[in-house]
Amino acid sequence: MSTKEQRERIELLQGTLDLLILRTLLRGPVHGHAIAKAIEFNSDEVLQVEQGSLYPALHRLIKRGCISSEDGTSENNRRAKFYKLTAAGRRRLTIETSKWDKLAGAIARILRPAEQEGKS
């Protein structure tokens, strides 16, 4: 995999990062560093998360009650804080995902009207 250069980094909105974190945690508890890596990996390196902004986002989600944290051990036997999705977080994820789908679809329709027509 090639590493993208700094110039092409697409800035993520604060709310979007929250959404991605919640999604990443859907499969189970993950620790901070792994979340960052997961987002990068699952987006084919398009989304380079500024790792520093991860932590305020995580704390925000904790404050809102969407995720919870506990200490654990990571893969390489290091101590790490693991973040877990709560029931409220799960609900929030569903809501935010559908909102995002609607948004994305609307923008796509505006940007690619010809393609739509062509298809139909």
Binding site: H33, A36, Y55, R79, A80
Partner: peptide, 19 residues
Amino acid sequence: MMKDLEQDIRDHIDTETQD
């Protein structure tokens, strides 16, 4: 939380370093 954050950041950087 703030105390843990210090530690978390250090851990994060260490993990990244390892990678």
